[in-house]
């Protein structure tokens, strides 16, 4: 494609074409399969940037910094609803859950760490299934292991190793997600003002088959219900349907033996009682027709839940 033709595509994406150029652009699209293909690819770039911008904490940094630098007295604060799709989850169709992003300078915010887990003591493995109790790691098979030459813990001497995308007794016919869960009690901790919870965790993979592709995922769900109101057989679908707010971030784990921190931030109401952590490793490729993924070397460390209150 010529530069002039590319300029037309970018002008369209920027919404800066005048009437005459828009007519040329439409003519180009009618006649050129390559132009249409390039437009679809450039739109994919835009879709990805939009998705990341909506859920990436880094997004707000430039806006915040530039706002502070250029307008030092300006204090602009806004909550902006994101689409469920932008957050990579589909919740709105089933319930009233809303995913929010936050844009604005982090002025005088109070950060309180309400949960931190480095797997250094206590827990040795996950309990099977999704526990309804506070203080337990549950979910698919995973165990705490010591740092080793092939993989060092992110902090301290231990980390959690994902073993399987299922747990004994689940009898799952097909699964590529290794999920672990934790319920964190935040009753009475959401202060006056706008409170958000930020959940972060670090993930890494050891040396694995180069053909396989994996991602890690951090999801936070805010619950206003009491634990006694939870169904006896709790599952992820129920949590997503009944959470008052939720957010998810999924990131590719591309480099071996490099820790990648992933975080997600979700606003919570003063009525929020619990934050449910859903942390996972996913085998993206190869896709399985059947069977359950056994993870060859995937780890998690330094899980943290913070409450952030902004006046």
């Amino acid at each position: 494609m010529t530069q002039d033709q590319l300029d037309l595509l970018h002008g369209y994406l920027n919404s800066t074409l005048d009437e005459a150029d828009f007519a040329r652009f439409q003519s180009l699209l009618r006649d050129s399969a390559e132009a249409r293909r390039t437009l679809r690819s450039l739109s994919t770039v835009e879709a990805k940037l939009t998705q990341l911008a909506a859920i990436h904490p880094e997004t707000v940094r430039l806006l915040s910094e530039t706002a502070r630098e250029s307008r030092p007295s300006a204090r602009w604060l806004s909550w902006r609803p994101l689409t469920a799709a932008a957050a990579g989850i589909a919740l709105g169709m089933f319930c009233t859950s809303v995913v929010f992003g936050y844009v604005g300078p982090r002025v005088a915010e109070k950060v309180k760490v309400v949960f931190a887990e480095g797997f250094e003591s206590g827990v040795t493995k996950t309990e099977p299934g999704l526990s309804r109790e506070v203080g337990h790691w549950s979910g698919d098979e995973a165990e705490v292991v010591k740092t080793a030459s092939e993989m060092k813990a992110h902090g301290g001497a231990k980390m959690l190793r994902f073993l399987s995308a299922t747990y004994p007794g689940e009898n799952s016919p097909r699964s590529q997600w290794g999920d672990v869960y934790r319920i964190v009690d935040v009753r009475g901790l959401a202060g006056a003002g706008l409170t958000a919870t930020r959940v972060s965790a670090s993930f890494a993979r050891g040396t694995v088959d180069a053909e396989a592709q994996f991602s890690c995922s951090v999801e936070a769900m805010a619950l206003e219900q009491d634990l006694s109101e939870l169904p006896s057989r709790l599952d992820l679908m129920w949590l997503r349907q009944h959470s008052s707010a939720a957010g998810l971030r999924k990131v590719a784990l591309s480099s071996a033996q490099e820790w990648k921190q992933v975080s997600v931030e979700v606003p919570i109401t003063p009525e929020t009682r619990y934050v449910i952590l859903h942390l996972a490793i996913v085998q993206d490729r190869p896709a399985l027709e059947s069977g359950v993924v056994q993870f060859p070397g995937h780890f998690m460390d330094d899980v943290k839940v913070e409450l952030i209150t902004r006046p």
């Binding site: 994919t44 990805k48 940037l49 932008a86 992003g101």
Partner: peptide
């Protein structure tokens, strides 16, 4: 393409990456 973009966006110089994300923020 979406998978590849994760790494490609990471490779952008920090200033460009932050600018792009800021421009596409909600």
């Amino acid at each position: 393409q979406l998978d590849a973009l994760d790494a490609c966006i990471t490779k952008l110089p920090r200033e460009r990456r932050e600018l792009a994300l800021a421009a596409y923020a909600p």
